[in-house]
Amino acid sequence: MTTSDTATDAQLSALETRFEDTIARSERIEPRDWMPEGYRKTLVRQIAQHAHSEIIGMQPEGNWITRAPSLRRKAILLAKVQDEAGHGLYLYSAAETLGVSRGELTEMLIEGRQKYSSIFNYPTLSYADVGTIGWLVDGAAICNQVPLCRTSYGPYGRAMIRVCKEESFHQRQGYELLMTMMQGTDEQRAMVQESVDRFWWPALMMFGPPDEDSPNTAQSMAWGIKRNTNDDLRQRFVDMSVPQAEALGVTFPDPDLKWNAERGHHDFGEPDWEEFMQVVKGNGPCNAQRIAHRRAAHEDGAWVREAALAFADRQREAARA
């Protein structure tokens, strides 16, 4: 809104008070409400990069659609990848309520100026990875996303509610896929274990660096954009995953992973944060490939977008004539 351009100091502080009171009452901020510029920018960054993650996240698994082992698995995988596209679109739509355009966001993604989750810069080397991504990667995403359903910005929270409903299918199909493989041959079991070994640490990194290295977490929590700290969510994920791994019959590649009765939680080792930073900076195994693919899809589709507009223009003119 333009209010902040012309408002006096007194008006501005009244607006701020109103904004803070709304947050304090755990009510939602809606698009046409006045909001501090820092709040708006933080949300644009977070929602846009969340949307980019969903869109880029189609690639690692999309890679396997044409090589699915059965029609059943192919139909499931197609539905799942289509859901990721849908999640991206819900989120872009939420970001647009903050005054950015879809075209801008897409450009910032393919120019590498905005990021997406590092997890999608790891390759999918076997079909077991489809299962592991569903179980661990989508499982971690659920830990992240469930608290966001209560985030302070209305359109973001509503988008997350839709996403979370669908995410549960993703996790269950992945776990069932792995269970099926574990009931197969020794080679198939080894394939599952190898896949879990590769994805465990990157999955833990999905929660971000330790809390003492996240300087702005406090501000995001005060604004109700963030609901739990990185370390809290990581702990919750580890505690959830251990019994699931036991039921499946696989182990996690962490010698320090053990139950701590005193804390009532599992202790576990430290992820390699240097690797995390390298992947964020663009030096992961698949960064260049993911962006190049997204750019090609966008640029190859330009004539379709233009043609559809030209067709719509002509239809309108014909209707007027």
């Binding site: 960054r45 969340h50 993650s53 989120l91 950015v100 992240n144 996303q145 300087p215 977490t217 995001s220």
Partner: peptide, 21 residues
């Protein structure tokens, strides 16, 4: 650098990222 885990499928940076072109 600040990273939020709640960027859906994993931590994304919130600093040094443009919010508009």
């Amino acid at each position: 650098q600040d990273f939020t885990a709640e960027g859906g499928h994993g931590a994304v940076p919130l600093e040094g990222v443009p919010a508009a072109k």
